[in-house]
Simulated assay, not measured.
Amino acid sequence: MQLLEKLVTTPGIPGREEKIRELIKDELNKIADEVKVDGMGNVIGIKKGKSSSKNEAKKVMVAAHMDEIGFLVKHIDKKGFLRLEPLGGFDARALVSQRVIVHGKEELLGNLAPSTKPPHMLSAEEAKKKLEVKDFFVDLGLDGDKVKELVNIGDPVTLKQDFVELGNSYSAKAMDDRIGVYVMLEAAKELDYHEADIYLVATVQEEVGLRGGKTSAFGIDPDVGIALDVTIANDIPGSKEDEMVASLGEGAAIKIMDAASISNYKVIDTLKEIAEDKELSYQMELMAKGGTDAGAMQQSRAGIPTAGISIPTRYVHTVNEMVDKDDVNSAVKLLSEFLKTCHEKDFSL
């Protein structure tokens, strides 16, 4: 799993995806006929259909966002403590006692801490205060002058965590959505024959409003779109059974809806048929909160038939996002089989 480890550990917050973009470009150059970067910064790898002319080939777009949640430095005080502007959704409870990397003139490791007294000094009333993301600062262990020499306002800040194997799972920061990028790349490698022209797109700025998915879909104008992203696996203590979106180990999730899209039912049916025919484990996903690039593609131009293949993930938007190995393999196989046969289908309504 060296590729997945490289993907999750390479930094790339919204708008500053340059390092992860170069890694993905290198990988796409191994499998695509053409690789380009559009004006927004999306990486687009094109695999031409084997037997179709340029004018006849159906275009299928696969989108997985490369950006991860993170921060920008917005203030440096005289002692060298950094205040942050979040990019993406954070739960402040998951930030306590974490470490970050500040990508300044050099990479600087720092402690992320809330601006509050130590627990043993808090009054009962102070202890009840709810933490907010705006309460956190970064301590680089350097004096103010040195920090200002190495760090500028607007420098990216990413969370720090190792990639580890836990039982039948992998855990790391930025599985959202580097695991989607991984599935896209691995599925493309499995293609021995396909008639559709396949556009493999690593999108930017998804975490701040599906921005790269919108612009890339407009430029490609595909006949059908598949969004690859994580979905909530809340199969853990504290969740009710009827509130569960997905579970680890039960296969790739076929998206019915999320907060940004309702999937084309013909694409859903095709994915289900493939999963059942190939005896792939799958589950159905309805996620009422949280959108994906499916919404950006679906609403492009006059509308694109779109659905999603999601990888169930525990502890989303934390440094310990966890995926199941078998679910990942199921997603790779489901996508590759769809790409082999989608030219035969009519997804119009």
Rank of each mutant, 00 (worst) to 15 (best):
M1D: 12
L4D: 06
E5G: 05
K6F: 02
T10R: 01
L23Y: 09
K25W: 08
D26W: 10
N29K: 13
D33K: 09
D38Y: 03
D38C: 06
V43M: 08
G49W: 10
N55Q: 14
N55R: 15
N55M: 13
E56W: 07
E56P: 06
A64W: 03
M66L: 00
I69G: 05
F81Y: 15
F81S: 09
F90T: 02
R99Y: 15
G104S: 07
E106R: 15
E107S: 14
L109Y: 14
G110F: 06
N111R: 13
P114K: 08
P114R: 10
P114Y: 09
P118T: 10
E125W: 11
A127N: 13
A127G: 11
K128T: 13
K134E: 15
F137V: 09
F137I: 05
L140V: 04
G141I: 07
G144N: 12
D145W: 02
N152K: 12
I153R: 12
D155I: 00
P156F: 04
T158E: 13
V164D: 12
G167I: 04
M175R: 07
M175L: 15
G180T: 01
Y182V: 01
Y182W: 13
V183Y: 07
E195Q: 14
A196T: 15
T203D: 06
T203H: 06
Q205H: 01
V208P: 03
K214W: 07
T215M: 05
S216Q: 04
F218N: 10
I220P: 00
V224I: 04
I226V: 11
A227I: 03
D229P: 02
A233P: 01
N234T: 12
D242M: 12
E250V: 11
E250S: 12
E250R: 15
G251V: 02
K255L: 10
I256F: 15
N264A: 04
T270K: 14
E273V: 00
D277H: 12
K278W: 02
S281K: 15
Q283E: 12
G290W: 05
T292H: 09
T292Y: 05
T292D: 10
A296P: 02
I309Q: 10
I309N: 04
I309D: 05
P312D: 01
P312T: 00
N320L: 11
D326E: 10
V332P: 03
S336E: 02
K340L: 01
T341H: 03
K345P: 04
S348H: 13
